[in-house]
């Protein structure tokens, strides 16, 4: 995943790994959950193979329409999905990133999803000073 800034999210889902893999890769299923509240999915296209591409068109309100596009870098059913993640159609897009989903089965038969989104830019290493980093994010959230 390389160096740079990373976003980590971990979630437990009450389904088997195979089912979760499908939710994360099948266009008709992605269209049902992808995007935060207030966004709707206009279109999802995907060629699920390493080197294959995907395209997700999102809409927010009347005027904001943009796409997230990328290529699958690594696919290991049902454990790993890694893909590039690029914004198109926004005036000031976030920088390009690579997203990796790792799915692991729990003893109870549920699935743990670990997501890492790695941005191809580096930010100051506040992470080594976690208190400073927390303060910074707190400050950012107050300013935002």
């Amino acid at each position: 995943m390389g160096n740079g800034s990373k976003v980590y999210v971990e979630r437990m889902f009450q389904c088997e790994s195979e089912a979760l893999f499908d939710w994360l890769t099948k266009p008709e299923l992605i269209a049902q959950w992808f995007g935060p509240e207030g966004f709707s999915i206009e279109k999802v296209k995907s060629t699920l193979e390493e080197g294959g591409s995907y395209q997700i068109e999102l809409r927010k309100g009347e005027n904001i329409v943009f796409e997230i596009r990328g290529k699958y870098l690594k696919l290991q059913r049902p454990q790993i999905i890694e893909f590039t993640y690029n914004y198109h159609g926004l005036e000031s897009p976030p920088p390009p990133s690579v997203v990796q989903f790792k799915i692991s089965a729990t003893e109870s038969g549920d699935s743990m999803l670990s997501m890492v989104q790695a941005f191809k830019v580096e930010t100051p290493d506040f992470a080594t000073r976690s208190k400073a980093w927390e303060y910074m994010l707190e400050r950012l959230s107050q300013l935002a």
Binding site: S5, V7, A19, F34, Q117, T123
Partner: peptide, 30 residues
């Protein structure tokens, strides 16, 4: 800090993006 704010905003933006998406996914799976 104001100048850094805009450039670093996407870190919290993306955490929210995925968390809210996964909330929806969790509801669908349940």
């Amino acid at each position: 800090h104001e100048a850094l704010k805009k450039s670093l905003q996407w870190i919290s933006y993306h955490s929210n993006f995925w968390n809210e998406s996964f909330n929806k996914l969790d509801r669908l799976i349940k």
